[in-house]
Each structure stands twice: as structure tokens, then as C-alpha cells.
């Protein structure tokens, strides 16, 4: 079943730079997809369009039945509640504890206290962070912060998890740990995972679908792909 449909999509920034050019791609429910490409290739723009941080200039980006190109500012929350987002820089609220950070996502959608408590504890347990619920983000290691970020992203049982270079700030061992958590979420909950990454080792090891973008153009869409560099681009 189709979850994401990107059709004839263009993104041209105000300064004239074309970040995405005529992109067509579909992603089904339950898939684990890597988006790779050099810095400035357009993969972050694509990721941002999926959660409506950016709007396509032309064409359509449909996520879970919502056309992000037509989504008004005041209605963005409807899309965001259907998905979870994991960032390279974690984006945890520094003045809230781990528990509060994760609970905040549920409080935003108005769940009651008991439901929130159950879901938050379950999410933190699934990422192995139950012992740190009272810690503040600056008291955690990078890997722990990223796990808290994943817990926040999955706490509402989203159908789609968007990960924008989640291992970019982490050392190789911790990166593997994070990817294993994502893999577990994908396999156990059937959550679709889209992960932009530069991590060659992880892509090669996972053998999942790979979308390679260079200069805003989709140059490779391969099932069970590996981290190959396109002939026309320098090695990264």
C-alpha cells in the first residue's frame, strides 16, 4: 500500500537554486528506505518536503493522503501528527527532562495523563532509556539523546518515521545501535522508515532500498542497494 507519492516535483529556492528537479518516487507502507547523496544534492530538501518544512515549487508530494503542497501553515500539525521525525542534532527541549520531552509530543495532541504516561514509558523502554527519564538532555550522551529523540518520534505510533542523518553526530558503534533500534521499529511495528544518511557502512550492511539523489535528480532507485557513488559525482 502506498504511503508516499512524489510526482513531477520541483523545488526552486528564492535565490534561484534548483534543489529538486522533476522527482518521481513512491514509497509503500512498511518500507525501509535510505536516501543518499552528496552534501547539497537535495536529499535534505526532499526530507523537509515530506514533513512540510519546505513546500514544492511545482508538482505534488503526498504523504499519508495529505498533499503537502496545498497544506496551510495552520494545518501543518495534522501532517506532523501522522509522522515522527528524528534529527541529526536531536532537537530536544533543553529545559525539559527526557520524560517531559517525549510526553510533550502527546500533550500537544491532547491525550490524557494516564495514556501519556503509559505510551511514554513504553517508548522509552523500547529505546532502552527508561532509567534516564528524569535526566535533562545535557546530562545524556549523544547516543542517549538520539534514543530520546527516537522515543519522541515513535511515541504516537506513527506510520512514517523520517530520519534526517540520525547518525551524523555519533561514533560508528553508537550509530549501529541507533540503526538497530530503527530496524526493530520497522520490523516490529511495521513503521515506514526514510533515512537520509552519509553512512556508507550502515547502508551497505542493511541492504535496504536506496534512493540516490545528485544535483536534485533521482539517479538511482535500487532495492537492496548499497552505498555506491554515481559516475558523474565526485567520491564522498
Amino acid at each position: 500500500m502506498r504511503l508516499i507519492e512524489v510526482k513531477n516535483c520541483y523545488k526552486v529556492y528564492q535565490n534561484g537554486v534548483t534543489a529538486i528537479a522533476d522527482l518521481n518516487v513512491t514509497i509503500d507502507k512498511g518500507e525501509f528506505v535510505f536516501i543518499i547523496g552528496a552534501s547539497g544534492s537535495g536529499k535534505s530538501t526532499l526530507i523537509k518536503m515530506l514533513y512540510r518544512e519546505e513546500k514544492p515549487t511545482n508538482g505534488s508530494v503526498i504523504v499519508g493522503g495529505i498533499n503537502v503542497a496545498k497544506l496551510r501553515n495552520s494545518k501543518v500539525y495534522k501532517l506532523r501528527r501522522k509522522l515522527g521525525i528524528v534529527f541529526q542534532d536531536f532537537k530536544l527541549l533543553p529545559k525539559l527532562t527526557v520524560y517531559e520531552n517525549v510526553a510533550f509530543a502527546l500533550e500537544s495532541i491532547g491525550l490524557n495523563g494516564r495514556e501519556i504516561r503509559n505510551k511514554v514509558l513504553k517508548a522509552l523502554e523500547s529505546v532502552g532509556l527508561k532509567e534516564k527519564i528524569r535526566s535533562f538532555p545535557n546530562q545524556l550522551s549523544g547516543g542517549e539523546q538520539q534514543r530520546a529523540c527516537i522515543a519522541r518520534a515513535i511515541v504516537n505510533d506513527p506510520k512514517l518515521l523520517i530520519c534526517d542523518e540520525p547518525t551524523g553526530n555519533l561514533d560508528p558503534d553508537i550509530s549501529k545501535e541507533i540503526v538497530n533500534i530503527l530496524k526493530k521499529i520497522n520490523e516490529e511495528a511495521g513503521t515506514t522508515i526514510i533515512m537520509a544518511t552519509h553512512d556508507r557502512e550502515i547502508v551497505n550492511e542493511m541492504q535496504k532500498r536506496v534512493l540516490q539523489i545528485e544535483n536534485g535528480v533521482l539517479v538511482r532507485d535500487e532495492q537492496k542497494g548499497s552505498y555506491k557513488v554515481h559516475e558523474s559525482t565526485p567520491n564522498v
Binding site: 500539525y77 506532523r80 501528527r81 532537537k91 530536544l92 527541549l93 510533550f104 495532541i109
Partner: peptide
């Protein structure tokens, strides 16, 4: 402003 950005990212309505 990061706080506001995160609130929006986790699906908070504008009024929230």
C-alpha cells in the same frame, strides 16, 4: 525559537 520549532515539529497546533 528552537523550542517553538520543536513544538511545531511534534504536531502542536499554533494555539498550543
Amino acid at each position: 525559537k528552537n523550542e517553538i520549532e520543536i513544538m511545531r515539529l511534534v504536531g502542536a497546533t499554533n494555539i498550543r
